[in-house]
Design a protein around this nucleic acid. Structure first.
Length: 317
DNA sequence: ATCCCTTCCTGAACGC
DNA sequence: TGCGTTCAGGAAGGGA
């Protein structure tokens, strides 16, 4: 399931082999993968377009085209892109082929048919496409962006700069979104309006790092806890990017490569194994209908009293 | 406004 | 062996 680090890795592996190339035509093997507009419109719009840059916002992959247009892609659960040579073998889950004028084929493969491709026209179209996304976590040294917060650069062909400048995630932005909320912190972190890019894996990892139980209500978190959580999110995502993503089953980068972050996970799918901090057995519970992995000792479940009166944070057992 | 449930979809892992 | 059932989950949409 591609989350921010996986989409970032796809972005980085796809850019050097796609930017500057021209699309010849789109072949929609399963037209249902088009997220907006009609299939004929999609095919007509893509034909002849030149890829001028590739970037990412949250879990969206944004392929910039000439004439201020973007191909926005959400991979959801099992979607992936692979660059293939002309006439290459076709995966049984192939949903679309984006033919390039040089003969190569960009294959969009998606076992479960949740992923979508959509075209956005103009900077306002792109803003509309991204309207539901909250602040972007900025990973240190992860980007060479030359845009500034709040500054939208509409110049086609300038790579990263042609995405509207997002608000960046900070402890303050999290605090304002958690304030007054009674829902479990895990639910709030999965909501892309709180922070863009987190999914089930990195939420569990970040909450463990911050020693926060996923059922803790968002509004009950104190300033220090939110500060820790903010850092934990950035650390979890940075580690994921460093390891080129987490490959538990389907995920591959644009070159077909797997990530290695699955070997570095602290709690996700480690139920039954010892906590790497205290040795207690990791358990799997359900929170907002999601499989959730916690260390029951490092992440103490909130009670009615502890939610009302915050206990002192645990320092070094 | 907020929160929770359902829907979409396929294939793996079950149980009988 | 082979069938049917359950589970996995990101985001949108609907109902309470």
């Amino acid at each position: 399931m591609p989350e921010l680090p996986e989409v970032e890795t796809i972005c980085r592996t796809l850019a050097p082999i796609l930017v500057g190339s021209a699309f010849a035509r789109a072949e929609l093997v399963w037209p249902g993968c088009i997220g907006n507009g009609s299939a004929p419109d999609f095919e007509a719009s893509l034909a002849g377009s030149i890829c001028t840059g590739i970037s990412r916002r949250g879990k969206y992959l944004l392929i910039a085209l000439d004439h201020s247009r973007w191909l926005g892609v959400h991979l959801r659960m099992t979607g992936r892109f692979t660059m293939m040579d002309s006439g290459a073998d076709r995966d049984r889950h192939l949903r679309a082929v984006l033919h390039l004028q040089d003969g190569r084929e960009l294959h969009f493969i998606d076992q479960r048919k949740f992923g979508r491709l959509a075209l956005a026209f103009g900077i306002d179209g792109l803003r509309h496409f991204l309207r539901r996304l909250g602040p972007e976590p900025v990973i240190a040294a992860a980007r060479s962006s030359n845009s500034h917060p709040g500054e939208a650069d509409d110049t086609a062909g300038s790579g990263f700069a042609n995405v509207p400048g997002p608000e960046f995630m900070t402890a303050a932005s999290l605090a304002s979104r958690f304030s007054g909320r009674r829902a479990p912190i895990k639910s709030l972190l999965l909501d892309q309006q709180s922070v863009a890019g987190l999914g089930n894996i990195y939420v569990d990892e970040a909450l463990f790092r911050a020693r926060i139980h996923p059922l803790t209500s968002g509004g009950s978190l104190g300033t220090a806890e939110i500060g820790n959580l903010c850092e934990a999110i950035l650390e979890s995502l940075a580690q994921g990017i460093e390891n080129r993503g987490t490959t538990l089953s389907d995920y591959r980068d644009a070159l077909g490569g797997t990530g290695s972050n699955q070997t570095k996970l602290l709690v996700f799918r480690r139920n039954g194994k010892p906590c790497l901090v205290c040795g207690t057995e990791i358990i799997r519970v359900r929170v907002s209908a999601r499989g959730t992995h916690i260390c029951p000792r490092c992440q103490v479940e909130p009670t009615a009293t502890s939610a009302a009166v915050r206990p002192p944070s645990v320092k070094g057992d």
